[in-house]
Every structure is written in structure tokens, then in C-alpha cells.
Nucleic acid binder design. Sequence first.
RNA 1: GCGGGGAUGGCCCAGUGGUACGGCGGCAGCCUGCUAAGCUGUUUCUCUAUGAGAGCGAGGGUUCGAAUCCCUCUCCCCGCGCCA
Length: 442
Amino acid sequence: MIDVKLLREDPELFLNSCRARGYGSDLVESFFELDKKWREITSILNRTKHDKNVLSLEISKAVKEKKDPLALKEQVRVLNAKIDEMEREVTSIESERDQKLRLIPNIIDPEVRTCKGDDNNPFVKFNGNASVFHDDIREFMSRTENKGVYTEIDYRPLSHVDLQANLDLVDLERAGKISGARFYFIKNRLFKLELALMNYAVDFLSQRGFSVVEPPLMLNYDSMARATDIETFKESLYKIEGEDLYLIATSEHPIAAMLRDEILEQKELPLRVCGVSPCFRKEAGAHGKDTKGIFRVHNFNKVEQFIFCEPEYSKDFHNELLANTEEIYQSLGLSYRVIDFCSAELSVLNARKFDIEVWFPSQGKFREVASASNNTDYQSRSLNIRYRSKDGNKFVHTLNNTALATTRTLVAIMENFQDRSGKRITVPDVLVPYTGFDTIEK
RNA sequence: GCGGGGAUGGCCCAGUGGUACGGCGGCAGCCUGCUAAGCUGUUUCUCUAUGAGAGCGAGGGUUCGAAUCCCUCUCCCCGCGCCA
């Protein structure tokens, strides 16, 4: 949620942010219309309540002095009827107003470029040495602003779907039979590789000052609504029938909600939390995309980074979160590019967002594996997470970034580290201590 | 699931129908000077702000008036039951 006071003081700030996102100004305008009405009625209501309180005190005195309070009581009854009516009106206007308020998006970081469309997200950097099939070189170089480094290959590597069939690593048919599309059984060495990835990422973050939590996998409506935005609710979340519970789409949400309504000490900050959990997503808006294999699925495991910090430092921590994930992917030997999101592609919560996209030689594309968001004080204001400072209690800034999502990283490893026969996958060196094997083959 | 106990400001705690007591901590100031202490003020949210309103886990109800009485719910603690 945005800061109402700031909105009243400087509407232009929010109008600009709305425009850059392609929103139009109706939201802000209808907020002000309702807010004006709300203030007017609230003011009369409070005056009436004051009158009532005064009368009530008089009754109290009258009773003590053994005078008859009947006439005074009647006056209060009349006021009560008015108060009831006004209160109903205020409540209804207030809820309408707050509904608008909750939809007004976060203020965009001034460094974000005003543009639209995923293809226009500004390129930030490339790292690695990608295997690129010669037909894809042009695409590869254009996506890296000619800064990409590659080794040309004269064949197209197998997709993970074919590889896993060759090596008996995933059973999609039976998962489809019992659960439906986008479900899977992960089998054998691929499962051990998944465990290795999670362990590796957790160890990595532990060494960088993160505490580790496995969160609740369900949140109630209130916590979820305050930790996320309406789009996530609509597009992603599974609800438990007959219960006030939703399956989490990422551990970002329970970690953010964990500290709701709390006041932290300044010396506790920054608070670095690593969350490890399955993530459940409906993928309702993704019909027809990535329908084969385990690239886009209804549940996967993820190691997430989350930071609560003082406002002054959130940009630094945003970079720290990005650097952590980059280092993980570098150490795995995967080539990636970083993009900086266009204003119109940011989520309502985001002030700024970077994505890390790994090169998949079998698809000839960079694909998203991690997403680093700075939500500034938008999430913390909804969740009411503050810290004590010299100038009073202030909202913390919250940031998050994927450290490692297992299914996509497994696909990346399979597609990048297969040999030419398509019957053997090399395990990245850093994972071998965790897996106990260095190849996956038939 | 059953029975009992609980939830009051950042924290602790008092409060059996008349408008929330006191302490601790934090902040500001004063006084002072020896590992410090003392004194005063302040401490949540909202508003059209010398003033008002709201706020005692949440939501209803009774009443002129509810932290207090009644109903429903949530969470925590103790015991019993069930259980990987």
C-alpha cells in the first residue's frame, strides 16, 4: 500500500508512476473524490460524537447528584441515530476509498526506464560463455547488445523433455494421469541433483548472513492480501476449499507476513532471511506456454532470499541480492543476462525489478530463472512492519530475489551440460560434494 | 476434538458499568559530575489540529455510557484425547 499522506501532499508523484505503468489517472482521481467526501462526513461525525460524549458525562453527573437524567438520555438517543447513519456512510465510503488506495501502485524508482513490453526491458549485463547453436547466434548477440560471449556449436542440443525421457529422470505421463498437466514425478539422480541444488543454495546464503526458514505453506486471506497484490491472487493462488487458507506461491509471502504488525529495533536491521519451500502456482495466464516438461509447473521448490532493511540502504541490498544469485549461477557454470524491468512491466508492489535469464541452447533463448524486486515500503506498509528510529517508527523496506528455483535450474543444467549423444549430463563441480556423483547417464 | 486459563499502549501490569492506573524501556529537556543517579515532559492511529475523534485480540449485542455484562470467532498457555 502507498502512503496516503504523501499521496495527499504530492499527487503528481503517483500520477507520474501510474502513467509510466500505463495506468491512466482514474484511480488517483477517484481516490481524491472519495477522500474528500470521507473527510467531510468524518468531520461532522466526530463533532456529533463529541456532543454525545459531553451529554453522557452530564448524565453521569446527574445520576450522582440524584437528578432525573431522562431528558438528557433522550437527547443522546437522537444523536445516536444520527451517528449510526453517518457511521454507515463513512464506513461505506471508506471501504470504497481504501479499495482504490490499495490498487494504486508503488512509486517507480527514478532509474527505471519508461517503456513497455518484455522485449524492451533494458539489458544490464551478460556473464559466462554460452554454447550457442549457429542458427541462434544473431538472436543471442541481439539479446546481449553484442556483449555476449559464446562458443559456437553445430548442432541443437536436446530439450530437457527428450533428455529426461532418454535418461528416465521425469515421469510426466503418470503425473498427468493422476494430477493433470504441469505436474511431474522427478526420479532417480535428477531428484538427488535437486536436493543438491537446494542444499548448495542454502549453504551459500548461510555463509552470507542469512538465517534459514521453512515457512508455513499456507497463509490466511488477510496475510496473503497484505503480502501480495491482486494480480498474484487472481493468477497464481490455490485456495483450500472450506478453509481460510491459500497455498503459497513463493516463500517471499510468508517471510514478509511473518513480521507483520511488529516494530523492529534499528540494530536488528538488515534482517536477511533465506526461505526454502515448495511454491504452488495456477499458471492460469500461461495457457499454451511451455506445455511440455518441467519448465513451467504447478509446484516446484525454491530457495528464496528476503531482506528487511532501512529505507536508505534498500538500493544497496537490491544489488546484494542480485549479486548473490549471479554468483550462484556463475558457480554453476551457467551463462545468463540481467535485465532491468520497463516501467510498464513492473508489478504493483515493485519500485524496481531485475531478472536473471539463463541461456538455454536447446531453445535458443534466454529464460527467466530469478527475479529480484525492491518493493521499498509498499509491502511493509500493508503489513505494518516498522522499526524504531530516532525520528519515530518508520516502515522498513523489503526486497526479495530468487536464489534458486529447482525445476528451472534443473532444466538449465540438463540442457546446458548434456553431451553430444544426449545420453549423459555432467553435474556442475560445485554440486558434486552434495550429489556424490558427477554425471547422470543411462 | 474435549476441559480449564489467558489476550490491555514498544514491553510488563492494574482495572466488576462513569470515559485506562502504575512501572520499565525509548526520546527530549533540566540538574549534576566519577564506573552513576535524580527531576520534568513525552510516548498509538485519524482529522478541517491551541481542538477533537478512535483505540483494551476480532466482530456483533445490551446501555445515555462497556476494558468491565452477553453472543460468535481467532490466537496463545496448561491438561486429556488423537497422531507422523
